[in-house]
């Protein structure tokens, strides 16, 4: 098994830490998602813990992305998509008519599968969110936010001399970290990541994984991944989806070492998917 060795003290510790603190950030109950007549998500109940990394795994087409996108109402932008059920963040129903998706998305940021920097300068890419949300009143403040976001995303040293250069001129891995910096810059509480490393090479992947691990201290992170190793490496909690159903949810270590469901076991041992 090709596995990048993690510092030995990391994994067991975190798992214990997570199992200790059980503050729930996102609680979903009986969530249904339809694309027109397709029932893409059925009866999903899930609790996502605060300040921890939750991984969604499952075979292609099982609805991981769909469910992830319901968490910050990105599905609103798809005409045929309909969401039912109850999703609460900090006890507030995000599908309540009083909630403005724009404000919600400031709180729940998103990073996509393919790096998608705007065709603007690196600076403007990061500053975009703070600007539209009015987070900085002075140029200096904005500069500060941009710099700290880039630092948190571990990109600062690589780009600090070319902030005016185009964001699209970076390498794939750098672009993805730029997108993470862009998401952090709005100071979200939750960051959703949909296969953030699938377009990256192993070294860039390692960097992003490291970053995710650091971000865990301040943010609630939900990550979709196809790589079981990645899920094992970065997450504390893992949810296994299959055919639109949440099959199993538990501490990452438990899921990988001692799955309760036959389907989970088949999947993690590579018998299907």
């Amino acid at each position: 098994m090709v596995r990048k060795p993690l510092p030995m003290n990391e994994m067991p510790n975190t798992v214990e830490k997570v199992t200790d603190m059980t503050e729930t950030k996102i609680a979903a109950r009986k969530v249904q998602v339809y694309y027109g007549d397709t029932h893409a998500i059925q009866d999903v109940d899930i609790d996502i813990q605060a300040k921890a990394v939750t991984a969604f795994i499952g075979p292609s087409g099982c609805g991981k992305s769909t469910f992830l996108r319901t968490l910050n109402r990105m599905n609103d932008t798809i005409d045929v998509c309909r969401v039912e059920g109850d999703i609460k963040i900090d006890g507030e129903d995000i599908y309540d008519p009083k909630v403005d998706p724009v404000q919600l998305r400031a709180k729940v940021g998103m990073v996509f599968q393919k790096p998608n920097p705007f065709p603007k300068s690196i600076y403007d890419n990061v500053a975009y969110g703070p600007r539209i949300h009015g987070l900085a009143s002075k140029k200096a403040e904005l500069d500060e936010i941009v710099a700290s976001s880039l630092q948190k995303a571990g990109l600062w040293n690589e780009v600090k001399d070319r902030l005016d250069g185009p964001g699209t001129g970076l390498s794939g891995g750098q672009q993805q970290r730029l997108c993470i910096a862009r998401a952090i810059a709005v100071s979200p509480e939750v960051i959703l990541m949909d296969e953030p490393c699938s377009a990256l090479d192993p070294i860039a992947t390692a960097k992003v994984e490291e970053l995710i691990d650091e971000l865990r201290e301040n943010y609630t992170i939900v990550i979709v991944t196809h790589s079981m190793q990645q899920a094992a490496r970065v997450s504390q909690q893992t949810a296994f989806f299959h055919l639109g159903i949440l099959v199993e949810l538990g501490a990452t270590q438990d899921i990988f070492t001692n799955p309760q469901d036959k389907r989970t076991q088949d999947y993690i041992t590579g018998r299907f998917g």
């Binding site: 990105m74 724009v102 919600l104 709180k107 990073v111 996509f112 539209i132 997108c179 998401a183 709005v186």
Partner: peptide
């Protein structure tokens, strides 16, 4: 203009 560009912006909470 690729959809990814829009997604990126909506994902940050832009109208």
């Amino acid at each position: 203009v690729p959809q990814a560009m829009r997604d990126g912006s909506y994902g940050l909470g832009a109208t």
